[in-house]
Design a binder for these strands. Structure first.
Lengths: 343, 343
DNA sequence: CCTAGGCTCTGGATCGATCCAAGGATCGAT
DNA sequence: ATCGATCCTTGGATCGATCCAGAGCCTAGG
């Protein structure tokens, strides 16, 4: 059976529109890009022709001439399973929405596990994207330093990770310490005094940042922190192990965790002991993941304003790619606490 | 303070390579696209020049000439919160990985809520992408029918949704009925006989599909289904309400759910009643979401082979975009059951 | 009446890669 | 030595949009 497979019929070009409207190509181009250069009646005629033919500029041709693709590269790290972090998903959605309004599309890519820079390099050299958004900067992301050395435009979601305070690229960050402080303050309000911290290992800048929010708030209220902190890997098993140790040695009545994953570790141990979160022991997480939203009785969690972050990122991108280019200031956003049954 | 903002220095062009290697542009082009047309020593010389300059073909120029962008459009629906479905995330990851190997990149876009076709139309008319991947076909997605009418190449993740058995586009689907059957069979093995079903409303084709897996398996084992089925919205609250009704009226000892979200509804009610999932009442979900993986004591769930699905989708795409184009057959993949504490 | 200057509009060149048709080199056979 | 065939290489045209320089028209001012 010989069946014709769908192929696009050739779309109309600028020249087609020009002919129909009885003007030159350049005039049509102006109608699209600089409408105020045209006389009113000409503009109307051209727009009618555009409408009639359903004309849209060919992206490849435009991109070739203007040397800009209106695509933004976003590298996505391998999906992690067995934890509760689905931050990226929400951020990507927000980003796609926001950048569409600014006339940009998001191009996804991955790289080798070995060479974190490979994917960036390819896209850069083939001039496939105008800029990048770099997300996991807190881990000392080598891609960012590399991009900077290549003078490639990019915006970091996360503050500059190195000592260089004189940052040469825009960044957007969410105030993690404030988030942890909120969670801690909330538990104190509820009458807790022995509040434990379960966070990441000391080499995580972001982890230490979040921890400082807990430490600060405890201190402000004259509460002791000694023996109440634990720093582990970001897995459920580690969170659970930390819970066991803390419960047995320091008998806290509440846990503030650096991630929803760790908080789930706490919930696992409570479940095993037949304790009820929110009634017997309070727990808070970080990220407001779907897990936090759905686990019974609901996990109180620090929600990051990813939608606002996306807006700020895109705004910074527009600055970078604008003419003249403009280097936007760093932006610090405030998270908020979503209170649920676990506290 | 006047600081130079990063701009890319102009990348080398084909002509640059040609000059360095002492050959013509076309020869360099052949070295890249049809290496076997060159004599061995010429090829080596050109490749050395390419290496030395770090040359990569300009995507815009290539795309303009060949009328193909090597980009695949993927529309992402607005992120849904408060449920447990994070299917898309895993699928997108798998897709990005797989399509990279095939030389494609994934372009994300969204559309208006009102006009589901708008985003497709723009990308199509501006020849921004070579093809689309359409994901939510089971809901009677109008985009698919529209794409077909425009003769635009696309692959559906999900079977053709309408009556037209003579499908004119490739599809990849996961055998939902088999998944539900697995879950049901697993519970029967564990000794359950009164196994309830909580699924989606009757107008969901996919929902009825999954339900049939439960019905069939129950029947095969001579078990009654009367009064044991419930069809509701895909929310935690609905799932919980259905659980209440079923527990009170039909006293099942196990629940098979059409989604992890509904299963979480069951867990919520069990939690409220002080019942322990897996010990007092067994529960299974669908999709193996992060929620299923992390909720204590773990939710048994049907895991879809999204990585395999991505591979099949990309293979079908390569067929569609190949020369000559080839219309791949529909592919049906089998899910597997991930057993956890809830059963 | 003439010209300067503003407003519109135009045609040719250009971006960088690939398609195409034809040119040159090489080789064996006659 | 000549010819044809094969293999490799080449310059010009092309994809569709935008940049650029300048042409035509009109009005205001001298």
């Amino acid at each position: 059976m010989n069946r014709v497979i769908g192929r696009l019929s050739a779309p109309p070009t600028l020249a087609d529109v020009a002919e129909l409207a009885g003007v030159s190509r350049q005039t049509v181009s102006n109608a699209v890009n600089n409408p105020d250069l045209l006389r009113e009646d000409t503009l109307a005629r051209v727009q009618a022709a555009i409408e009639q033919l359903g004309y849209q500029p060919n992206r490849a041709a435009r991109s070739l001439r203007t040397r800009s693709s209106r695509l933004i590269g976003l590298r996505i790290a391998p999906a992690q399973e067995g934890n509760a972090n689905a931050l990226m998903d929400r951020f990507v959605h927000a980003l796609v929405d926001t950048s569409r309004e600014a006339g940009y599309h998001i191009l996804l890519f991955t790289g080798d596990a070995e060479d974190p820079v490979a994917g960036y390099d390819d896209l850069l050299r083939s001039t496939a994207v105008d800029a990048f958004i770099v997300t996991d900067t807190f881990m000392g992301n080598p891609a960012a330093a590399w991009l900077r050395s290549r003078r490639a435009p990019f915006v970091a979601f996360g503050r500059p990770w190195d000592d260089e305070h004189d940052s040469v690229h825009p960044w957007v960050e969410i105030d993690s310490a404030a988030g942890a402080a909120m969670a801690t303050g909330h538990l104190i309000e509820r009458g807790h005094t022995r509040i434990a911290w379960i966070g990441w290992r000391k080499d995580s800048v972001l982890g230490e940042e979040r921890r400082s929010g807990w430490t600060r708030t405890m201190r402000e209220h004259g509460l002791a922190t000694t023996g109440l902190a634990s720093r582990v890997e970001d897995t459920i098993a580690s969170g659970r192990a930390a819970t066991v140790a803390l419960l047995d040695e320091a008998s806290p009545t509440a846990f503030v965790c650096a991630s929803d994953t760790l908080a789930m570790g706490v919930l696992h141990e409570l479940y095993a002991r037949g304790l009820r979160p929110g009634e017997d022991i309070a727990v808070t997480g970080f990220d407001d993941s779907q897990v936090a939203q759905t686990v019974p009785p609901g996990l109180t969690s620090v929600r990051q304003p990813l939608e606002d972050a996306a807006v700020a990122v895109v705004k910074a991108l527009e600055g970078l790619l604008g003419n003249p280019p403009y280097l936007a200031d760093g932006v610090m956003l405030q998270p908020r606490l979503v209170v649920r049954g676990s506290s």
